[in-house]
């Protein structure tokens, strides 16, 4: 199922001559609602073609940042540029470049799926003939071809979400801003959504996607930013983080007796951070690489400890990520 979406209408040609400028450039962005500081000096640069994951707890400011990028909210101070265009000065240009999917959205119930897409296509100034060619492709991309004549209010939530994603794509935007596109979807629909996003990524689109859940994002994004209380607390390249995560591991060791002794011995070894002991064995927070890990095991055996098992535990991505990137977000 390989679908290519090309629009050769004027949107491309009219795009500002800013091939070198990053897709998104946010500098010192602040947003205040009354006395409440929703965004506190956010800095963020996202190059073209990147898939950027925006993570943070409820109320952190993800949707606020995205609304500002989508020209729906005026920042209190700071600047935000999309494709080199300032969102407050050239909102119309910016709107041409982005496909925005809000966290909550409604649909016009009385429209059929195809009509719905026709309406938004027309609203972006795409000629009718081109829409007629494009819309079946979009429906195909989001797996809604068999629902093309269904009224929108008969679609399930996941289908509406996918229809909205297709809607974001009608004008072939370079940047997709997706605010929790997978919220409210069942696991299967989440996987489908992820597949669609991968396909969009392969088309070369820049994607900004938000979620509460880091592991869900980690496997499909290139970069991750963590936002809390309106501040960017951490930011980094996912691959880098993952390779550093492989360094940071928790070892689970089960011994046939002499556990206390083993704990003492391990405490004195290099690269060992912390040791915990419970009924299931000894847990060692270990900073070393594979080399050092085998050294550790070798040492244990040499000391005559009788080992039942020696294994790496699943690490908590969130914890590790936050620990590794602590402070990276600031001043970058």
């Amino acid at each position: 199922m390989k679908t290519t979406i090309r629009t050769d209408h004027e949107a491309r040609a009219a795009a500002p001559a800013a091939a070198e400028s990053p897709m998104i450039e946010i500098r010192g962005l602040c947003k205040q609602f009354g006395a409440f500081q929703a965004l506190n000096s956010i800095d963020l640069v996202i190059p073209k073609g990147t898939v950027f994951g925006f993570v943070g707890p409820n109320g952190a400011g993800k949707s606020t940042t995205m609304s500002i990028l989508a020209t729906l909210l005026a920042p209190t101070s700071g600047t935000a540029k999309v494709g080199g265009c300032d969102v407050t000065r050239h909102p119309k240009q910016v709107r041409k470049l982005i496909g925005y999917m809000p966290d909550f959205f409604g649909v016009y119930d009385q429209f059929k799926a195809t009509e719905y897409l026709h309406f938004y296509g027309a609203s972006y100034g795409i000629p009718k003939a081109e829409r007629a060619r494009l819309i079946p492709q979009l429906l195909e991309l989001v797996n809604l071809t068999d629902k093309k004549d269904a009224y929108v209010d008969t679609l399930s939530r996941g289908m509406k979400q996918r229809l909205c994603l297709a809607r974001c794509l009608v004008h072939d935007p370079e940047l997709l801003i997706l605010d929790e596109p997978a919220s409210g979807l069942d696991p299967r629909a989440r996987i489908e959504m992820r597949e669609i996003l991968k396909e969009l990524k392969s088309m070369g689109k820049t994607i900004v996607i938000s979620s509460h859940i880091l592991p869900e994002l980690a496997e499909m994004v290139d970069e991750i930013g963590v936002i809390e209380h309106g501040r960017m607390v951490a930011k980094g390249n996912v691959q880098e983080i993952q390779s550093r995560m492989r360094v940071k591991r928790i070892l689970q060791i089960r011994l046939a007796g002499r556990e206390e002794e083993a704990e003492q011995y391990l405490g004195g070894r290099p690269f060992v951070n912390r040791i915990l002991r419970d009924g299931r064995g000894v847990h060692v927070h270990f900073d070393g690489h594979d080399e050092e890990q085998s050294e550790l095991l070798h040492g244990l055996i040499e000391q005559g400890f009788r080992i039942i098992s020696f294994s790496e535990a699943q690490t908590n991505l969130e914890d590790v990520f936050l620990e590794i990137t602590k402070g990276d977000g600031e001043g970058e």
Binding site: A70, L72, K92, R95, Y100, Y124, C164
Partner: peptide, 11 residues
Amino acid sequence: KQTLNLLLTTQ
């Protein structure tokens, strides 16, 4: 109905 924001981001 939360359709306004979608309309406002069009051209």
